[in-house]
Design a protein around this nucleic acid. Structure first.
Lengths: 343, 343
DNA sequence: CTGAAAGCGCTAACAA
DNA sequence: TTGTTAGCGCTTTCAG
């Protein structure tokens, strides 16, 4: 026979046990533990005392079973090791915890694993699913919607009915970068992104170019894209090696990691920012502020993104039918040392 | 009435529905879904087909309820933002996933939150709890043991009956650092740790000094501890500012983050490694390998630690009574540029 | 090898 | 305000 949670006397500590000890019914215990219904203060005290004495804790499996819903929130992460992702993830954990919910987490190595992962979350009757990587498979998203389980996509706008999205304001970020570089007197601009492009990278690049348009049209500036072979530091450094064949004095990067890599690669080629060129990153991860880099960058508000994502999830849980929302969370320019001299 | 998981016809997709569709009993469906008992191949096919058609997925809440145990594993993390912790955490997620289990995660800002967190995990009848931060409160650990729920402490040896621990081999790491520095000709050694000391830092420092003992006794070397105000980069840099009042030509650091900070601080003071001193870090986090640092360090095997932790947890789930184990996972010296000239 | 029945611990109608 | 009752979906003896 399976072992049960039990006290010193060997009796399982269930609501029933508490009820007997306090001389009330299971239902009363349940009411008090879930803090919903109105109960006489005196009864409550008696029950709470009994519960404490027995060390009773509600069995969430039973509660979920009955309510057809658990207090679990599924989080899909990818690359938890990347500093920005890590801070976003941490913010999400905090936010969920603050709401009295529990995080169920899966790391996926590969976007193809997304559907299996979400399906598994569904088996636990999660309150909602937060996807920080990729776009949820449409079929699954629709199934979730049908079951009344909210799905919110983070840092990727997604056009699936009933799926909300929250992302950093890439458009403003790109514009801020363009304005800063132009103000610093840069004339030969570039955007460093990863080969093939990521969702966020593309959005930032597009906004950057859009803000550059007038200067480009007036012949006051030139623009060219530069691609890195991957999203990591090394790829950024490698990109810097070959970047000087054509003129370049102002670079906006899809991420801080890439920007720092570029800075290292440029230094190896004898080019120092802001002396020889200006550069702006994106994210504001801790290493960017470090002495060797002092990178000017666009700060993403991970805490804000997390808060909005969870809020949206909860709102949809209340109002399953409402139209899908896409929310942009403000970003801010962090001026450090790599844009100048005028910037 | 609460909404239920249902198919197109509005009928909830439970084992019962699958049973009817396949013309068998709920029990048979259950047996097949849990893959335990022997079933006729023909029946199995029929049931599996019906399940697929209906999109049936086992309700883990129900299963857990019945089995008195869920497939959930609780992970307690702290500082998921620190690069080594992040990689350990990621390895843990992967390992748990590979075993067909699900991760329940809580980030704690503060060690005092540990007991509340573990208690909450218990409400979900987790298969086990992995603590990557601090030592589990004794009372809780004992309660877990009583319930047959394994607890394993990661990167902290802990003397609680029934609680296993797995950590990196700090002793070997400290010795390796001492040998390298000595071989590089260093005579004035130091250990940089955070004020007050962390568990791992203390262990590394102790091993370092022990390996230095003969040289110290022979008057061939001197040693002094240096303390940083915190565990972060800035604290390391600040420590470097005041480190040169007394001679110092070989430094072992409690972490790479501290070491990189020290390197930056030293550079600001005109001291470059390995020209002016040698330095060894611990962890081998990604930034340590970057161009500005090229830090020689002791690599921790996050994957190995994770694998052993999960293995220990599962072993204890099988054999609740076995004596507590403390396992050390091998570390390795990663030679880069900051030890020299002979190192 | 398969079915019938019992029950895991909880909550929500409904009655009192 | 409190108790009674009826399941939530699943697994698991116990029979057949």
């Amino acid at each position: 026979m399976a072992r049960r949670r039990q006290d010193r006397t060997g009796r399982p500590v269930t609501a029933q046990a508490v009820a007997e000890q306090a001389g009330v019914s299971r239902a009363t215990v349940s009411r008090i533990m879930s803090g919903q219904a109105r109960v006489a203060a005196e009864t409550r005290d008696r029950v709470l005392e009994a519960a404490a004495e027995l060390g009773y804790q509600v069995n969430m499996l039973g509660r979920g079973m009955n309510r057809q819903r658990s207090d679990l929130v599924g989080i899909v992460v990818r690359g938890a090791t990347d500093p920005y992702r890590a801070s976003l993830f941490e913010a999400l954990l905090r936010e969920i915890d603050a709401r009295g919910l529990q995080s169920l987490v899966s790391e996926i190595g590969d976007e193809a694993a997304l559907d299996r992962t979400i399906a598994r979350f569904l088996q636990y009757r999660v309150t909602g699913v937060l996807v920080t990587s990729g776009a949820p498979p449409i079929a699954l998203a629709e199934q979730c919607a049908r079951l009344g389980i909210p799905v919110v996509a983070i840092n990727r706008a997604v056009a699936i009915d009933g799926v909300d999205a929250v992302l950093s304001d890439n458009a403003t970020g790109g514009r801020l970068a363009a304005e800063s570089l132009l103000a610093a007197g840069c004339r030969h601009l570039g955007f460093l992104g990863v080969e093939g492009g990521t969702y966020s990278g593309l959005a930032r690049s597009a906004a950057f170019v859009a803000a550059l348009a007038p200067a480009l049209a007036a012949g006051r500036a030139t623009f060219r894209p530069i691609t890195a072979a991957g999203p990591d530091h090394e790829a950024g450094a490698a990109a810097a090696a070959g970047a000087w064949a054509q003129p370049l004095d102002g670079l906006f990067c899809a991420s801080d990691v890439l920007a720092c890599g570029f800075l290292d690669g440029a230094r190896a080629a004898g080019r120092i920012a802001p002396r020889d060129f200006s550069i702006i990153g994106f994210d504001d991860v801790p290493p960017a502020g470090l002495a060797p880099y002092r990178l000017t960058t666009i700060r993403q508000d991970a805490g804000g993104v997390a808060a909005r994502a969870v809020a949206l999830m909860l709102e949809r849980a209340e109002t399953p039918g409402r139209p899908a929302t896409i929310e942009a969370v403000p970003v801010a320019l962090v001026k450090r040392a790599t844009v100048g001299p005028a910037g």
